[in-house]
Simulated assay, not measured.
Amino acid sequence: MRPLIILRPARGAGRTADKAMAMGLAVRLCPLFAAEALAWTPPSAGDFDALLVTSAQTVRFGGAALQAYRALPTYAVGAATAEALQEAGFVDPVAGDGDASAIAARIAADGHRAVLHLSGEAVAPMDAEPLQVTRLPVYRMKPLPCDPPELSGGVLLVHSPAAGARLAEIFPENQRATTDIVAISPAALAACGSGWASAQAADAPNDAAVLALARRLCE
Rank of each mutant, 00 (worst) to 15 (best):
A95M: 05
L32H: 08
R140Y: 08
T179V: 05
A190R: 09
Q57N: 13
W196F: 07
A100D: 01
D97V: 11
V123P: 04
L51A: 04
V115M: 06
A45K: 08
L52V: 00
A37N: 06
D92R: 14
A95P: 05
E173F: 01
Q175N: 12
E129P: 06
G14H: 14
V158E: 07
Q86C: 15
P143V: 05
G63Q: 11
M21T: 15
S185D: 05
P145H: 07
E121Q: 15
C146R: 10
A109L: 06
C30P: 03
G193C: 01
Q132A: 14
D147Y: 10
A187S: 14
Y75Q: 06
G14R: 12
R70E: 10
L136K: 07
V91N: 14
T81C: 01
A208T: 13
S152C: 13
V77H: 01
A20S: 03
D97L: 12
L151N: 07
R215L: 13
G153H: 11
A197M: 11
Q57I: 00
V59K: 04
A79D: 15
D147P: 12
D127C: 03
A114Q: 12
A76L: 04
A105W: 04
Y69S: 04
P145C: 09
L72D: 06
L7I: 02
F61K: 09
R8K: 07
A190V: 09
Q175E: 15
S119N: 00
P31G: 01
S194H: 10
L156D: 02
G195A: 03
M141G: 08
P31T: 02
P186I: 09
T179L: 05
Q57R: 08
A204N: 06
H159I: 02
D127L: 12
I170Y: 06
R2W: 09
T179W: 09
W196L: 03
E219Y: 12
P42E: 07
M23F: 11
I103A: 09
T58G: 05
L131W: 04
A188D: 03
A162W: 03
Q132W: 08
D99F: 00
Q67E: 15
S119K: 02
V77L: 04
T179S: 10
A80G: 06
L116T: 02
G195N: 02
L157I: 14
A34I: 10
P31M: 03
D180S: 15
D47R: 12
D18N: 10
A50V: 01
S55Y: 01
T179E: 03
A17H: 08
P186G: 12
S194F: 08
W196V: 06
E87H: 13
R60F: 10
T81N: 05
Q57W: 03
M126W: 06
A45H: 07
A108I: 00
L29D: 03
T81Y: 04
